Computed example of a mutant assay.
Amino acid sequence: MIKTTGDACCDRIHELCEERKISLNKLSIVCGMTQSTLSNITSGRSKNPTVSTIKKICDGLNISLTDFFDSEHFTNLDQEIK
């Protein structure tokens, strides 16, 4: 299966919510972003979330960017420059 950075971010956000037993709605509240923005990221409609958006999510989850990206989801991603 082809996995992009956007797919990996989506999977990682879902994984972190499951670990913390919080809904995407709750995450959007603690991150200070609209539910639609988070929904667009986690559904794959937003293909490439910015680092600043991921940082807001990390802040809401009380983790660092390093913790977010230190995951098997980001191992062996397909090259995105074609």
Rank of each mutant, 00 (worst) to 15 (best):
N76Q: 10
I2C: 00
I57C: 07
I54A: 11
T53G: 03
L16S: 09
K21M: 08
S28R: 03
G60L: 10
C31Q: 13
S39Y: 10
I63R: 06
K82M: 08
L16C: 05
T53K: 14
V51H: 01
L38P: 00
I29G: 03
P49A: 14
S43A: 09
M1K: 11
L16I: 10
E18C: 12
E80Y: 09
K56E: 09
A8Y: 08
V30E: 06
H73L: 03
D7L: 07
T75H: 10
E19D: 13
D11R: 13
P49I: 02
G44M: 09
S46C: 05
S23F: 05
C31W: 11
K21Y: 04
H14C: 04
D70F: 06
R45S: 05
S39P: 02
T75C: 11
D7Q: 14
I54F: 09
G6K: 07
D78Q: 12
E72T: 12
I13T: 10
F74M: 02
I63L: 07
S46P: 03
E80S: 03
T4P: 02
I57N: 03
E72R: 14
C31S: 15
D7N: 15
K56P: 01
L27W: 02
P49K: 01
V51Q: 01
S52Q: 08
I2R: 13
P49T: 06
H14R: 15
D59Q: 10
S39D: 07
E80W: 04
K47F: 00
E19F: 06
A8L: 05
V30Y: 04
K47D: 00
K47W: 01
G32F: 08
T34M: 12
G44F: 12
T50V: 08
G32M: 10
L16N: 07
E15M: 06
R12H: 11
S71Q: 06
T42L: 05
I63S: 05
N76G: 13
D11G: 02
S39R: 11
Q79P: 01
K82T: 08
D7A: 13
T50W: 05
K82C: 10
N48S: 12
T50Y: 07
K55F: 05
K21F: 05
G6C: 12
N48R: 11
F69L: 09
T34Q: 12
Q79R: 01
E19C: 09
S39V: 07
N76I: 04
I29S: 15
T50H: 10
V51Y: 13
L16W: 00
